[in-house]
Design a protein around this nucleic acid. Structure first.
Lengths: 213, 213
DNA sequence: TAGATTGTTAATCGATTAACAATC
DNA sequence: TAGATTGTTAATCGATTAACAATC
């Protein structure tokens, strides 16, 4: 637990990437891996790999590298993969549909338990196995089941209001896809995934290399 | 141009966020904004705002702040919003459908010009106004039109192969949604958007706050 | 044993922040 | 003028890298 608090966000960002490679190595039957090998697969330095693993008590063997199994277990534990999170989606559009079809989420312990929308025309509609419910019903659902994360896929016009609403319902985790800048209370964690921002960054970096002038 | 190369990635990440706020301020009829005001909206320090703007010759007026119009124009220019990028999607699934429906991309100069897939069963299918084409046809299309960015939405099993293929076709920008670790040549820019990694990060940060022990 | 690779420390690099003189 | 706010420098903070003794 003490460890957990000590791990910086920079490290946390790399953990799922390590985990993915370790999983692949397990499937390939590889049991031992060096920091050098891992670093090449991730385009980082071996030093960084070792210093990352030192955060949670690197169990390496000098001269031999790390045990793939032990490493995978440890990282999985830090990532909380054994924990079950309940999620709801707010916004019954095609993005909601995409997320419902993503099998990785449930594999990693993130379960969608309902889809909600403001718009009365969408209430009752089916998305995958889910029937869209009215947003206000979420507060009642929350009393019966824990809801850890709300995924916001409504339009940017409604997003601000919807986010404050789910925070009001007591939901502490928000994954927001809507391009709005929201300030949230300190005890709420928000991850913003602004798709068009990513594209602008990509465009910007393309220009850097293609216009050497 | 010299300026453009000097802007760090840390700054570039904030540019779309500044831009979004400036756009909103324009709509509200606000013409002048201070670094303090902007910083509060973005939950950063005023110093950081000023040092960011200094990168591209901050045009602030001591005592008054910055002109919203000038700032928006400058940032838009650095982000290359007046540039037209052609994009293709590889992988004709529901994520492709989501991206096709996103109106922000085209507004920012990123235009989808075609959807491709490996799978013969999907070729000919319609996604929005696009008819899915066979991936190999992309190399021919590339000879007629510039293709700046390939968006990879295929499954993780196929992703590696598909990415190498589009790089082989000479495409220099890749936006990859598939959870695979790929090493690309130095002249290729890849942006990986691993949706389940974002969720794991969110879960990790939720634990940090909820388990204070 | 000899070669490989860890764990860790110190050095470096880069990003952010604090502070304040300049000035509108 | 007085208050507000910039532009910029120096200080701080944090993340990454290089180096190397320890050791399997």
């Amino acid at each position: 637990m003490d460890h957990k608090n000590a791990i910086s966000n920079a490290v946390i960002k790399r953990l799922p990437r390590y985990y993915r490679i370790l999983l692949m190595l397990q499937r390939l039957g590889v049991s031992q891996i060096s920091s050098k090998d891992l670093s090449e697969r991730m385009a980082i330095t071996p030093s960084l790999v070792r210093s990352d693993f030192a955060c949670f008590g690197g169990e390496g063997l000098k001269g031999n590298g790390y045990s793939v199994d032990i490493l995978r277990d440890k990282i999985g534990e830090i990532l909380g993969l054994e924990i079950q999170y309940n999620m709801v989606i707010v916004g019954a559009g095609v993005l909601a549909h995409t997320l419902v079809l993503n099998k990785d989420f449930e594999k990693k312990g993130f379960k969608i338990i309902g889809i909600f929308d403001h718009n009365p025309n969408l209430v009752g509609k089916k998305i995958g196995k889910y029937e869209v419910m009215d947003l206000d019903y979420l507060s009642r659902l929350k009393k019966r089941q824990s809801v850890d994360i709300a995924i916001i896929t409504v339009s940017s016009l409604e997003a601000m209001e919807v986010i404050y609403k789910v925070i009001g319902f007591g939901i502490k985790g928000i994954w927001n896809f809507s391009p709005v800048e929201v300030n949230v209370p300190k005890d709420v964690i928000i991850e913003n995934t602004y798709l068009s921002d990513i594209l602008m960054r990509l465009g910007c970096n393309l220009n850097k290399t293609t216009i050497p002038k």
